[in-house]
């Protein structure tokens, strides 16, 4: 056995209906706190608010790019079920992250960046399902590092907490994708 968790087991563990019920329109406690008017008001007037907005916008840009990357994977014809369903569900998480970031930036008085008209990915290197999953894993790993690097520099600690919440989700994506290609799912005790 080269993997600890089989993809079939993952797929059955979270039925689609349950996934939609749990994550479709429900926001996590962190997100609710982040989006409350009181927090937004405090952040708006707080020290470093402009810097926070820039960080949030950069995070939004990366999330939009992740959504586009998963779209490329989903439309590539290289992913078979249940891996395809997994990729689409991860893309759904990124859409929720982007949506939350968009709303938060707006609520804090900033201007959210828009998705680009086109994104460029190294599609010429994606020849099979494993290539696509490894590429997705590399983006998820990078996202973990990016949020980890953002947490200490937010002026508003509620935003740090929200970033930590997103980081946890990205780390799970990364681990599952590693597992799917037969790599050790969690290679180290710490992320960097």
């Amino acid at each position: 056995m080269t993997t600890l968790i089989k993809l079939e087991e993952i797929s059955h563990a979270v039925p689609r209906r349950a996934f939609l019920t749990r994550s479709g329109l429900l926001l996590s406690g962190t997100a609710v706190a982040l989006l409350s008017g009181r927090d937004a008001l405090a952040a708006k007037s707080g020290k470093g608010a402009e810097s926070d907005l820039r960080i949030l916008n950069t995070a939004l840009g990366a999330e939009l790019e992740a959504i586009a990357a998963y779209q490329v994977g989903a439309e590539s014809g290289l992913l078979q079920k249940p891996v395809l369903d997994l990729a689409v569900s991860f893309q759904g998480h990124h859409k929720q992250h982007a949506d939350l970031l968009y709303k938060t930036i707006t609520q804090l008085g900033g201007k959210p960046m828009a998705a680009r008209d086109k994104y460029v990915f190294p599609v010429e290197t994606l020849k099979n399902q494993t290539d696509v999953l490894r590429f997705a894993a590399s983006l998820e790993k990078g996202a973990v590092s990016a949020y980890l690097g953002a947490i200490p520099v937010f002026g508003n600690r509620d935003l740090s907490k929200a970033a930590g919440s997103i980081l946890g989700d990205e780390a799970m994506h990364w681990a599952i994708l590693r597992n799917a290609v037969g790599d050790v799912p969690v290679p180290d005790a710490f992320v960097a």
Binding site: A68, Q71, V72, H94, K95, Q96, Y102, K118, Y119, V123
Partner: peptide
């Protein structure tokens, strides 16, 4: 500009 590569479609997140 960036090297020629196949541009890919994307979906905007639901707002």
């Amino acid at each position: 500009g960036p090297p020629a590569a196949r541009p890919m479609a994307h979906q905007r997140p639901a707002r």
